[in-house]
Design a protein around this nucleic acid. Structure first.
Lengths: 205, 205
DNA sequence: ATATCATGTGAATCATCTTTCACAAGGCTC
DNA sequence: GAGCCTTGTGAAAGATGATTCACATGATAT
């Protein structure tokens, strides 16, 4: 019973996407070629028509991850000019990205993804650094425009920003989706904004 | 060649501790009974004298994790009465805990640790919630004493607090220890403190 | 319509770990 | 120091997955 035949270009992407979902559902341990093949509707050995092996598959997954993160950044930069608004949007988009791709934190923390392959580790590092760099430049732009307090170090702020939703993601994950990350992200953003905005605090209470 | 004989009480702890280190070094995939046994100085099958199987070993690891986190909280509560100082110390201790136990974030994000076992997942959730609860009560106490701005929601703040070092831990990990988490934690703490303290900001320049 | 090339199939093979088991020693009690 | 319980050993058995391979089949070009 042959399944539909597809060009390797398309299949590769389709397989990598399915792999990301699979890891999201079952964890990296659950990334088994038979399960993956079943999801795509082919037979395990067919995967080898598109990937040299599991390693190459992992590479493709990391590439896909990169693509998604970059797309997010691009989008928010187009959606708004205001640096703080860009950051807020980036946060909300990032939350959605993680909600839809539970696989991402797992890949980052896995070690099994990068332990073997130096290139994969440095690619992951590059993705995070690039993201941080973008946030950092939003912070700097905010400072230039007088919106963000200039005594705060942009690179520290960028890291703190990225941390705003991480513990919430953990809770969400462990509680099986019961915890409301989106709501937390909104509140965390407010806390962050109040903490970094110029002049926003004197009247606080 | 018999290795030293030890009571199962001691061996269990010893094995669980070694397992935590092993996961820290090699990731969960690297948690293989032969490698673990070698580290402890026994033979793989001997592990079964102390654990029913790998599942029970994972349980023991989670228990150990819990013990370490609780110990941290207890210590800082004894070291200082000032809630903000308690939080600062907790942050620094937590950073050290993660530095020494790379295994912890991996276990939390693994899914392979909790997917099978409901009890393990809820235990992990309990650990995090307990930790959050402690931070939250430090925040409340800070608010009661007029040190922390009362319009900030304690539970949101507790989560933001826990997020202060997480992205830094990722960078540290991916950069193979090159990134200085401790320094980041100090800076991130300053950012956090300035953001939440009452009255600390009017003079900000 | 047929030759050709790429994709898909199913079964077999390999590799990697986990788990079991029969046996050997320690160490403790009497 | 004999008996008994517990811990440790080495080899074998089982499970689980990844990978290979010979063969089938769909698409495409001519």
């Amino acid at each position: 019973m042959a399944s539909q035949r597809l060009g390797t270009q398309i299949r590769r992407e389709q397989i990598a996407e399915a792999a990301l979902r699979l890891v999201g559902d079952q964890g990296l341990k659950g990334l088994r070629l038979d399960a993956l093949a079943r999801r795509v509707g082919i037979v395990p050995s067919a995967i080898y028509r598109h990937f040299k092996g599991k390693e190459e598959l992992l590479d493709a997954m990391v590439d896909l991850f990169q693509k998604k993160v970059i797309a997010n950044v691009q989008t928010v930069k187009q959606e708004s000019q205001d640096p703080l608004e860009q950051m807020r949007r980036l946060l909300m988009r990032h939350v959605e990205l993680i909600r839809e791709n539970q696989a991402l934190p797992r890949i980052i923390f896995s070690e099994e993804v990068h332990h073997r392959s130096f290139s994969r580790r440095s690619k992951l590092l590059g993705i995070i650094r690039a993201l941080l760099g973008e946030v950092e430049s939003m912070v700097r732009e905010g400072q230039r425009q007088g919106l963000v307090r200039t005594e705060l170090d942009p690179s520290t702020l960028a890291l703190v920003f990225l941390g705003l939703f991480q513990p919430a993601a953990v809770l969400w994950h462990l509680s099986q989706g019961e915890f409301d990350v989106t709501r937390h992200a909104r509140r965390a953003w407010e806390v962050f904004r109040k903490g970094v905005e110029t002049g926003g605090l004197q009247g606080a209470q």
